[in-house]
Design a protein around this nucleic acid. Structure first.
Lengths: 143, 143
DNA sequence: AATATTGCTTGCAAATTGAAAGTAATTATA
DNA sequence: TATAATTACTTTCAATTTGCAAGCAATATT
């Protein structure tokens, strides 16, 4: 797979990787919903089809945003984990959640509350660090 | 047009609107490349097709992220301008540019330099405010 | 009055997405 | 140990989206 970039713009180039319906949803599921296995993802609210999931995971792996690992005591279940490059997407996820809370809520009647949003807004950097640290603690003993 | 949201997650709902190849590219072009007219967009480096542009602009208008205005002395040329809801996407654009500078540059050999990136990183909030204020100054006298 | 420009729309081919079913390897259960 | 269930996919095919090219109507320019 050799990805093509549209032009020399850094923002457009980021969107050449992240700009689709599923990539950032998968990152979010890994980062804050503890999704780690193929099955975890298929069971999520977003209900991604297995063929799409398979191709997107492959793509994320090629960009080194995630890595695929095996548990030492289980040859069947693969673990998909965020790399540093993937964890560096946390600020984008955080900004998406703020914008959504303020601008999309009114359009989606079933949108769930974000009780932590005020804490988040009061100190974004601390919140981002907390999410990343929590992820690392949760995953460091898995492999 | 009645948009469908995948689920109750605020982040996924944001991506139901923003998660595609073109939407955030168009926002970026308006916000920092002074693109305002249909022609402006078609002449950009990203070279969007006119039918796609037309449908995306319509979509952005329906979500109240942009507004379409006419110059009083020109009945042909339409101006597309960001609303407050659209300007509130600036932090997302800024985070995309930081992530890209640090993580995509190595993959895209033709990516242009971002000389302002260090200024940006040293005070994100000030940079975001500057972008928004500059946009408002540039556009307030157009209509 | 003739030409060029702007802002689209239409038609069609190519690519992507998605639902459903199938498969192979591994693990759990009777 | 045999059977069933689970996981992680792949395949097939239909539906949707994207993209190129051409066309067109209204307005602006020469």
């Amino acid at each position: 797979m050799n990805h093509k970039f549209r032009c020399a713009c850094p923002i457009t180039s980021a969107l050449d990787i992240l700009g689709d319906k599923w990539i950032l949803v998968i990152i979010k599921q890994m980062l804050i919903e503890d999704k780690r296995t193929f099955k975890d993802f298929t069971e999520s609210d977003e209900a991604i089809a297995t063929n799409i999931l398979s191709s997107k995971l492959k793509c994320l792996e090629e960009f080194d945003i995630i890595t695929k690992k095996q548990l030492p005591d289980n040859k069947k279940t693969n673990l998909y984990l965020l790399t540093e490059k993937g964890l560096a997407l946390t600020p984008i996820i955080v900004e998406l959640s703020i914008w959504s809370d303020e601008n999309v809520r009114a359009l989606n009647s079933i949108m769930r509350d974000s009780p932590e949003i005020e804490v988040l807004k009061s100190d974004k950097n601390a919140f981002i660090k907390m999410i990343i640290d929590t992820y690392k603690v949760k995953t460091e003993n898995l492999i």
